[in-house]
Simulated scan of single mutants.
Amino acid sequence: MKSKKSIIDAGVSTLQLEAEAILGLIKNINDDFVKVVNLIIESKGRVIVTGIGKSAIIAQKIVATFNSTGTPSIFMHAADAVHGDLGMIQQNDVVICISKSGNTPEIKVLAPLLKLSGNTMIGMVGQLNSELAQQADLILNTFVEKEACPHNLAPTTSTTAQLAMGDALAICLLHARNFNEQDFARYHPGGSLGKKLYLKTGDLAVKNQKPSISPEAPVKDVIIEISQNRLGAVVVVEGNIVLGIITDGDIRRMLQNHTDLTNIKASDLMNPTPKKIEKDSLALQALQIIKENNITQLLVTDAGNYFGIVHLHDLLQEGII
C-alpha cells in the first residue's frame, strides 16, 4: 500500500504539471487563434471536430461545448472518416483535427483527404513539424513539455491542454455571437441550469391548488381551507382582488393569543401586505424573494389579480435550489 505522502505528492504533481501546461498555452492565443475564431463566425457551415484515441474523446467534449454555446458542431472519428464518415462534411464546413503528435497513421491518411475536400482545416496539434501541422491551414498550438504520467506516455497533460484550448475557442465564439442567458436557456431546456433561466412562477403556480377565502370567513373555515390545500396558506380575496394572506404560522400565533375564537374572521388574521410576484417573473426571482423574507409561500399575481401560490417545495422539486 502506498503511503499517504506519496499519494498526495503524485496528485499535487499532476495538477501542477497540468496547470503549467494550460498557462503555457497563453502565448499561443495568437494571430492564428484570432483567424480561427473569425473563420468559424463567418462560416455558413458547421464545425467538424475529429481526432483519434484520447484526442477523439476531447473532440467530443469540444463539440458538446460548441453546440451548447451556439456553434453548430459534429464529431467525426478519425478512424471512421476514411470508411465513409467523410461524407458528413459539407462544402462550407470548417474542420478541426486534434492530435498531440500530428503523425499517427490515421491522421496521416486523413489530413490530405481533408485538404482535397476544399474545406479549411485547423490543426490542434502539439508538434509543429508534424504531417498535420504541415497540411493545416491554421494551427492551434497545444504543445506541452511532458505528460503527467511518470513514463511520459499516458495522455494527461496533452489532453488537458487540448480541452483548455477548446474551451478558450468556445468562449471566444460565445462572446463573438453575443450568446446570452436566453440563448443558453433555449439550448438547455431540460436541465436545472436552463430552468433557472426560463421557468416562470406562473408555470409552477398552475400546478398547485388555488386556495382562497372571503374576508368574512370564520376561523374554522380558514383552518379547513389551509389544511385541504396543503400549501400552508390561504389567500383572502374579494372577487379576484387580493386583500391579504393567512399562513399556518398565523393560525398558530392566533391560538397562542386567543382563547375565544368566536368572532375572529379571516380579515382579522390576514397579513394585508403579502409578498407577491407576477406570474411572468422567473422562478429564480421567486426563490430570491422567499430567501430574503424567510418565507415558504409566495403569492403569484396576474396584472395584480390573484393567480396562485408558489411554495418552496415547488422550487426544490424543479431543481431551482
Rank of each mutant, 00 (worst) to 15 (best):
V235R: 08
Q288F: 04
Q162Y: 05
L287S: 04
L312E: 11
N67S: 13
T156F: 12
Q297I: 08
T65A: 01
A161Y: 04
K291I: 07
M1D: 14
R253I: 14
G304L: 06
E147C: 05
V109C: 10
Q297K: 11
G239N: 12
I320C: 09
A79R: 01
V36S: 03
N240A: 13
I48M: 02
S55Y: 06
P274M: 07
N180H: 02
K61E: 10
L231P: 09
T160S: 13
A133I: 09
I29V: 13
G51H: 14
V237Q: 04
A266M: 02
I245Q: 00
S267N: 14
K61P: 12
L284N: 12
Y306V: 11
I289P: 08
L173S: 02
K35W: 01
K265V: 11
I74K: 01
K27V: 10
I22K: 07
S43V: 00
L110I: 02
K146F: 12
V237E: 07
C149E: 09
A164F: 13
Q60H: 01
E225G: 01
I26L: 14
G11K: 08
I41N: 09
G304R: 08
G84W: 05
S192N: 14
I41K: 03
L197P: 10
F75Q: 03
N208H: 08
I22N: 00
H77A: 07
R186K: 15
T142S: 14
I52L: 15
I289Y: 09
Q288N: 10
L138P: 02
L199K: 10
G244Y: 12
A233K: 05
L312T: 10
I8W: 07
I224N: 06
T142L: 06
H188M: 03
G87N: 08
V219Q: 08
M121I: 13
G190I: 01
L298A: 12
V300K: 15
I277T: 08
K27T: 12
S3M: 07
K54R: 13
D248R: 15
A59T: 10
Q209A: 09
E145F: 00
S212M: 06
S68T: 05
P150C: 09
K196A: 00
V49C: 08
M254A: 15
Q91L: 02
I295E: 13
K276F: 06
L86C: 03
L174G: 08
N67H: 07
L132R: 11
V234A: 13
G191R: 06
L173F: 04
G166M: 04
T104F: 09
I251L: 15
N38C: 01
Q256R: 09
L261A: 04
I22F: 06
S158G: 15
L298T: 11
T259L: 13
A148N: 05
A168F: 07
S55E: 11
R253P: 15
I96C: 11
M165I: 06
A79Y: 02
E278Y: 10
L204D: 14
K27C: 05
G304N: 07
T201H: 10
